[in-house]
Design a protein around this nucleic acid. Sequence first.
DNA 1: TGCTCTGGTGCAAGCGCTTGCATTATGAGG
DNA 2: CCTCATAATGCAAGCGCTTGCACCAGAGCA
Lengths: 333, 333
Amino acid sequence: MSLEDVAQRARVSPATVSRVLNNLGVVKSSTRARVLKAIEELKYYPNVHARALAGGVSRTLGLIVSNLENPFFLDIFRVLEQEAHAHGYEVLVANTDYDLQWQNSSVKLMLGRRVAGLALVVSEIDPAVLDELEQRKVRAVVYDVGSPRRGILSIKCNYRKGVERVAEYLRSMGHKRIAFVGHHTTLGPLSDRKSTFIDVMQRYGPDVQFTTVADSDDYAGGRRAVQQLYSSNFRPTAILCVNDFMAAGVLRQLRDMGVDVPGQVSVTGFDNITLSEIVYPALTTLHIPRDQIGRQIFAGLTEPKPSTKVPQEIIITPELVVRESTGRAPTES
Amino acid sequence: MSLEDVAQRARVSPATVSRVLNNLGVVKSSTRARVLKAIEELKYYPNVHARALAGGVSRTLGLIVSNLENPFFLDIFRVLEQEAHAHGYEVLVANTDYDLQWQNSSVKLMLGRRVAGLALVVSEIDPAVLDELEQRKVRAVVYDVGSPRRGILSIKCNYRKGVERVAEYLRSMGHKRIAFVGHHTTLGPLSDRKSTFIDVMQRYGPDVQFTTVADSDDYAGGRRAVQQLYSSNFRPTAILCVNDFMAAGVLRQLRDMGVDVPGQVSVTGFDNITLSEIVYPALTTLHIPRDQIGRQIFAGLTEPKPSTKVPQEIIITPELVVRESTGRAPTES
DNA sequence: TGCTCTGGTGCAAGCGCTTGCATTATGAGG
DNA sequence: CCTCATAATGCAAGCGCTTGCACCAGAGCA
């Protein structure tokens, strides 16, 4: 059942049906009504592929994320989707599960779909992909990774500032033995957070001791990280986690081990996902405005005239949200 | 940059390039190598739309869910996606946000995309949509909603059994004042859970008192439901929640109100999402095997010969998972 | 009445790919 | 060296839609 069928039933040409469908050109209102009726009766819906093929570009946006399970990515997706729907776009997600190869083929697939714009919200990126996008002049936005390119909007988060804020806060609460719980990855923004942590700690001098541990980027990883941490002799009074998801695992493991939070140990997260309010004790964390990011991604993907001259960059500074999981360092050693 | 360009560069016809791309027919290995080289050099990727248009069906599965934010749906998506990738399919998600109208247009869009199969994992459904799918002979799977149709696999969860198990368990722990925290919706499986609850309670006779409250299907809704509950005179010793997400809100609100769980009140959830292990106290809940469901959806969508004669139905029985949020009813009144 | 103008509509050429069939290399057997 | 399967490849017709352009009927004007 195709445009043709509708046309026949309404006794007009396919072209006219197309015009009615797309509100293009001028169609006599009586004709339009006839066509609409035929569409209704036949329960006609257009073939997306034919439309895209004939029409050139689509009103579809592509979003590629590393891990939809992480609420951070999910939130961005939802905001983007909401924004897109409000403007008559739709969005296609692809999940790479941190697999660069899969990411690569996802990008190709998206381009093969002739998306109107492509957003990459991932933890790592192959520079060749960016080269490709730049060269093909695809409208694109990347979050958090890669160096700026012409015509590709780059949204970044100032992790240094964020980590500094947390560190500053913890020190102001008297913490002098601080641990960082991170992710295995050596690439991307997650390792930025770690190296920044080390920088900041070193700047504090010998007065403050610190260590870092790493495990997988999720709840179970958080639990294991704590076990690993406590299997050494280091007894932190504060644990800074690379994201909220891990922090939830950390909290849980500490509770299971009978360690009081924040009485004995303070814990902080990163991202301020919904979960951070739900866990007990509610997590002190750094807020990253996902709604704002989502909206900016949409804007970058659809803005009529992306200044292709200068690489654009937007920097976002996270803000500290103090909840229940942090407090003054215990006085006794 | 199209098939044509590749063909030219490899000095073959477009047809041959197509054959190489799809591993169809016989191509001399030297020719194949030449084509592959050209593809590589040109960084060619096929136009998905042209391919779908010319080829007829695609290897794309459609999934329509009510609310991706709910980890239950998300988990199903992930399993389905994983399964799909393993078999060379890809999956397109659409989020309806509980909006029936949006669901309708999503279905049309999916069909317009000529998906190989369409899964509907939603809380409510317009029977007309099912009629449509049945009539158009689209391969489809629905979870939890709608009456069985020819050629549409229907996967259901035996909520009655589930609710009975929870109720039975709570009664065995001595609970006699039980509240049900549900969702506003009057349609679909969520209201099934409620009506089953009422049935079961009534069967217990005057010995057991009960009530129900309803709010939105999320964390905040759970909190509000507790406030609403306690603004009445009813003081339950157990609260049965329609899903884990709401239960998390319930737990939190109770803690804020100084009510001890499970000392004073036992709380149960539904679904056994990851969150139920993370909250404190860890939630007693009903496990619904999302991985199994996801796999069955995939199978139903791709099985070579769906018996179009008899409507197929699969029933899943949830199992009780006892964690920390439940215990014996307090002895004092 | 004959002319131009314009709102409405139809025609037909693609968009980039697949695929059945025709056609041409290729090599084995006579 | 020719014949004829058979293996490789090319041709061309679509797939269902959009869109520039041609066309036609009336309205308005001289």
